[in-house]
Amino acid sequence: MPVITYRKALNDALAEELARDENVFIIGEEVAQYNGAYKVTEGLWQRFGDKRVLDTPITEAAFVGLSIGASMLGLRPVVELMFWSFAFVAYDQIVNNAGCIRYMSGGQIHLPLVIRGPANGGTNVGATHSHTPESILANNPGVKVACPATAYDAKGLMKTAIRDDDPVFVMENTLLYGETWEVPEEEYLIPLGVADVKREGADLSLIAHGRATVTSLKAAEILAHEHNIRAEVVDLRSIRPLDEETILRSVRKTHRAVLVDENKPFGAVSAQIAAIIQEKAFDDLDAPVLRVCTLDAPAIYSPPLEKIQLPTPERIVEKVLSIA
């Protein structure tokens, strides 16, 4: 099976969907002639031309709003935010228009729109460029949120997102763009709302999404080799809709859960998961549900310190050892 980067997997997904459906178009800052600030859209403008791949001025509120309006008439925009951190410039459009128009119209309108881009810390770009807004966006009924952790998931989820008739926000990770995984050549889709058990284990569940899944897998290795603890790693993949069944099945099997999350702790995705577990699997638990989140301060610039502000394998191991 070919081994490709997370970036290439996304690029292939976009190219395949552009070729499949002429209503799909790519819009964003530097996505066309510049080939994408992170090269996710590389080559697409050359292949599909000005109509299908559009460079915008730096004007997030306008091009996100434009895309929502265009989706009302049946186009399927794929909007790149150079960073999801820039979503706040377009927050009214994203939350009030993408999130609420269907509801406020009594279901007369649907918005087949994708907004995508990286949403992560860890690249020493300071607090303004390091937000992880999946928790606050998934807080809005009406929108869907996916956070792929691997190239395989990135491609399958992106293609699904583009074909979905609701607004889907795909949150990528600049630290994963250059990482490689096996990705089949034949076409496949990954549904939203289906988690993936990335490593089986019997002693404890590590539940994560996005890059925190990769960090959890590293921690699971350490736990297996150095502490003889068999950790299961559940990758949520999709935040909303959420695969609650897989979460509960894992916890009922292992009786212990540590939630790993690059969100800040307050109102994080992991806070919602913790609430679900205590509500629905309390009697299955042999220990409190614990979390490893990004340390609760704006993202620090200092490169060595930012590394430890995000969840690390070491912090996960330490947290696991406190209950296992």
């Binding site: 929502i68 309006g69 265009a70 459009q93 228009n97």
Partner: peptide, 19 residues
């Protein structure tokens, strides 16, 4: 939301031109 509709109008116009 005051002016929230202004880029939506842009998008409706964009879609007409696109099609």
């Amino acid at each position: 939301i005051v002016a929230g509709q202004t880029p939506l109008g842009l998008g409706l116009a964009f879609a007409l031109k696109y099609k």
